[in-house]
Design a binder for these strands. Sequence first.
DNA 1: CTATTTACATACATTTATGAATGTATGTAT
DNA 2: ATACATACATTCATAAATGTATGTAAATAG
Lengths: 209, 209
Amino acid sequence: MKASVNSSVKAADKSRTQADRSRAMRERLIEAALASLIDNGYARTTAVDVCKRAEVTRGALFHHFSSLSELLAITLSDTYERIFLTHRDPLDRKTLEQWIDGVWDKVRRPEFKAVLEIWLASRNDPDNTVEVSEAIQTYKAIFSPEKNENLDKLLAEDKEAYAFYRLAVEAMFGLALGRATTPGHEPLDHEVDVIKMLKKFARQMQAEK
Amino acid sequence: MKASVNSSVKAADKSRTQADRSRAMRERLIEAALASLIDNGYARTTAVDVCKRAEVTRGALFHHFSSLSELLAITLSDTYERIFLTHRDPLDRKTLEQWIDGVWDKVRRPEFKAVLEIWLASRNDPDNTVEVSEAIQTYKAIFSPEKNENLDKLLAEDKEAYAFYRLAVEAMFGLALGRATTPGHEPLDHEVDVIKMLKKFARQMQAEK
DNA sequence: CTATTTACATACATTTATGAATGTATGTAT
DNA sequence: ATACATACATTCATAAATGTATGTAAATAG
């Protein structure tokens, strides 16, 4: 029975199983990476910065991930799951209006800025893109009727509704972009009005059918 | 009468006035910076890269600009003028539909990706932001009814029309973002449909009045 | 024609990030 | 208890970017 009283780095982690330590550390790093993406952007998200946030050295990062971009790719996938799967509402709404609510509920979250950052960055940084491209495709697919059965059923054979859905998603992306470019990521003044109007159009759209 | 036959650097520029050389060089650097922003993004737009494109050394850049970020700020202002002022149509349309055409005509241009890049980057990079923030404000104002007399007149006292205009602009920003994140900046499949629908809504909006 | 300023190149010093190599403590199997 | 593996820290080598200092040719002033 070895008590291992003195933990040189942090008093926090008593004696835990290796698997536990690993999992905890990976989570810390992923969270730190996400936070850095959100308030530093992709370009300033360096291994140094992430590790400072996580309060560990880069040794930890490179032990668990082969590179910073691998961590970022995993962070993106992880964020994706957090927003779209773990979260309530797996995007199986019934009406256009409900779909708008559903998408907006995701896009408005601060984590979505991280997604935008990586989208833009990946286009510019093909080398590091390789690792994130898969996660990006998944993300984009979420908003594509073609990739989503429920949504596809709703829009099938209704060209107008399809175009409108696209319009709505683009508008919400625009709003998200606006937030991302605003100090403090504060909501824009006209956000509520725009969403309200989108939903009004949605109702009108389905009434026409 | 000194002919100055041998130009050591380029045979192109015969003996020209200093002011001419300066102006030409500044333009070359601005163009190179814009090009780099468009196909490298903000993060990878370095002084080295810009100068490689302009086929000059960094000495030239630092002679004309105090820093890379100053060049970028000036590039943004310059691009702004090129798109919004020098270009035909100073945004003085009469109907909502015409306004949509006008905005889309600007936003769809590849140069707008440079604007998006700087918008996002400036939020993340406060140090270098100082210099570009002014240009950014000008840019954003263009799309704000509050800052534009003609537009303000059109939307005044019509809350619905105001909200719709905002919606339209956000949707177009979303489309621009989509292009920016697509390899080759190719137009998205649904662009035409979205714009078409926006214009349809615009007509309907004004018919209601 | 000579002196001085301007436009630019070249060379150098500094900073910052990356990744690998190495060292050390802690958990785990026998 | 010993041997080994895993988790992480520390150190080092390298690359890339920035800014500055200095050198040189071309333009302009006297």
